[in-house]
Design a protein around this nucleic acid. Structure first.
Lengths: 354, 354
DNA sequence: CGCTTCCATGTAAACGATTACATGCTGTAG
DNA sequence: CTACAGCATGTAATCGTTTACATGGAAGCG
């Protein structure tokens, strides 16, 4: 373990003061071109890298952006993190990514942690924007942040997300257009995330608009989907009025539901239709492909970076934006009494009804 | 944006010196119990958090661990990151996660970046441990690190991974046991990662042991699997001697292959068997479940943290360890001429042959 | 009682950068 | 010829901690 090179070493090596070296490193202030070269040569020669710790200590900025996501392994947030990291890199920022494991207490401690690291701002997805201690802490401190995926009703410093309510309502419309009348929903627990709540509410609203009631609601633990098996088994044991179509509040849940239904001898979409929400890769990698709402996860990450930095530079008073989503037509949604009009073999045929 | 509370504010607030406050915060050195209480009260009252920047500057340790993974969205590395983050949190460390996007240059610049952040050590997965500029840089600097997933042949500071060669050889054995003789392999480009190379070599060795030659080798870009469609179409256009089983060097590739084969009208496993490598969740969420090698990704992350910290404390001269893997028996591998003995409907029936 | 020890606390010097201010030099206008 | 502007560079204070060393008082021991 060799001791790292400091700015003093550079100054000594090229016979100049630390001030001049600093000016060269940050190219700020007037320095003779000749001197710049000399300094840069020394930097190369000794392999100097300015200490972020010292820089953060003296100047207010650390060129670091804090990030809090509920899970690293959920593809939605992984993609968001990837998008944000890429954009941050382009702008010379380094993201400091923490996972909250969907836990309110960890959310808050992650915020405290990031604050201690003197990050310049925070990008985060909270469980429930309306009741987040972490968010409240940030608001109290007047600390710059931008929510990702949360689309809160109250005023916040910034947010980037999609309109879950409207998207779910469109899903309802789509399912209804296929002639389904007995329709269920599978969701993570509502108490946990505002997204799940919005999707539920939007779906209900979409059904209601057509005068249809939700036939079944199954709530499962969103992390490991326990309870799905029992719930579905129970629903289909009581023969008769069980749903012919299900809306799942995310794709992981949808895939788990399909696997479970197939294990129970039901065919998707011949017997039962399934629609997911997220548009993750695993849904597209199956045949027939999963019908779903694709959310622009990478863009949410990069747009959040841009919004946050605009906030830091006070270059805009923009408080947030809803990004567009896309209804991806897979093969897991079909007409209710599957006749020859619907071809379940072809996974990606555009739906002729819309 | 309120100015944060410093140790001086605390000292002033409770009429003590900064030294005493520091002693309380780090509970190091002798302090009267009464004083401790007084200080802690002030800390609570003012909401003080020590500045990591200042701490990192003064003391050598920043309690931060650098992490470099090839991709945030690949479930394998996402899981590894999750495992490592959890373990790090338990031990009071904060991980600083950077993605290299499978790019050698970014690998190196990530290392430089982390060094500037004065991380205490680095956990990383490189493309090719034998030819990594990043690794060389770390070795030259004598900087503590631990590789994850890479199992290099040469001496390194530390590594945690699985024996890809042996695992792939076992896959070959498994496939052969089902009576297949025309066997292909689909892999990411070998030039890119040592894992892909090891799996290829191991698979070949496993086949060779039984006197079988690899019938086909398809190499695709591992990030977006372009070329898979054309390659498989080409293989099966020339009727006759095409493979009845494929080993894919990771699960994402395996799922893409299955989807493509089904689009071509082939049934898995009735017509063609597929085995993956990784054991990602998406493989288990389909019916029949993907036959694969499950690597202990979370454990690789947490074990790497432990190994690195042992290195930092010079508490052990352990240089690395191979973790166990598990052959998961899904339904995508079946006997070559599928008779009534194999039931492709049930996704998780244990293979009766082994 | 006087000396040593030890404990609790304070003082001040680092750590490695940034930056306001000081300095000295050159060139040019009056 | 003087003076002042302006450029290139140096000096030193500062950011918020940690920590070696100093200090002062209480207790223990002969």
């Amino acid at each position: 373990m060799v001791k790292p090179v400091t700015i003093k070493d550079i100054a000594q090596h090229c016979g100049l003061s630390v001030a001049t070296v600093s000016r060269v490193v940050n190219n700020k202030g007037a320095v003779r071109a000749e001197t710049v070269e000399k300094v840069e040569a020394s930097i190369k020669a000794l392999g100097y890298r300015p200490s972020m710790a010292a820089r953060a200590l003296k100047s207010a900025s650390s060129m670091t952006l804090g990030v809090i996501i509920p899970s690293l392994t959920n593809p939605v947030f992984a993609e968001t993190a990837a998008g944000l990291q890429q954009r941050a890199r382009e702008l010379g920022y380094t993201p400091l990514i923490l996972s909250s494991d969907y836990d309110d207490a960890l959310e808050l401690s992650a915020v405290e942690n990031l604050l201690a690291y003197q990050v310049d701002g925070i990008l985060l997805t909270v469980n429930d924007a309306a009741a987040s201690a972490a968010l409240q802490r940030l608001d109290e401190a007047g600390f710059p942040y931008c929510l990702m995926h949360n689309v809160p009703r109250h005023r916040v410093a910034g947010y980037i997300g999609v309109d879950n309510f409207r998207a779910a309502a469109e899903v309802a419309e789509r399912i209804l257009a296929q002639g389904h009348t007995r329709i269920g929903m599978i969701s993570g627990e509502f108490i946990r995330t505002d997204r799940a709540r919005d999707r539920h509410a939007g779906f209900l609203a979409g059904l209601k608009y057509a005068g249809v009631e939700l036939a079944q609601l199954v709530q499962v633990d969103p992390v490991n989907a326990t309870g799905l098996q029992q719930a579905l088994t129970a629903v289909y044991e009581q023969s008769g009025e069980s749903p012919t179509a299900w809306f799942c509040s995310n794709d992981l849940l949808a895939l788990a539901a399909i696997a479970q239904l197939e294990r129970m001898g039901k065919q998707v979409p011949e017997n039962i239709s399934i629609v997911g929400f997220d548009g993750i890769q695993a849904g597209a990698l199956r045949a027939p492909a999963l019908t779903s709402i694709r959310t622009p996860n990478l863009d949410i990450g990069s747009a959040a970076v841009d919004l946050l930095l605009a906030q830091l530079n006070e270059t805009s008073a923009d408080t947030g934006r809803k990004l567009g989503y896309e209804l991806v037509t897979g093969g897991t949604l079909a007409a209710v009494a599957a006749g020859p009009s619907t071809d379940p073999e072809s996974g990606n045929t555009p739906d002729p009804h819309l």
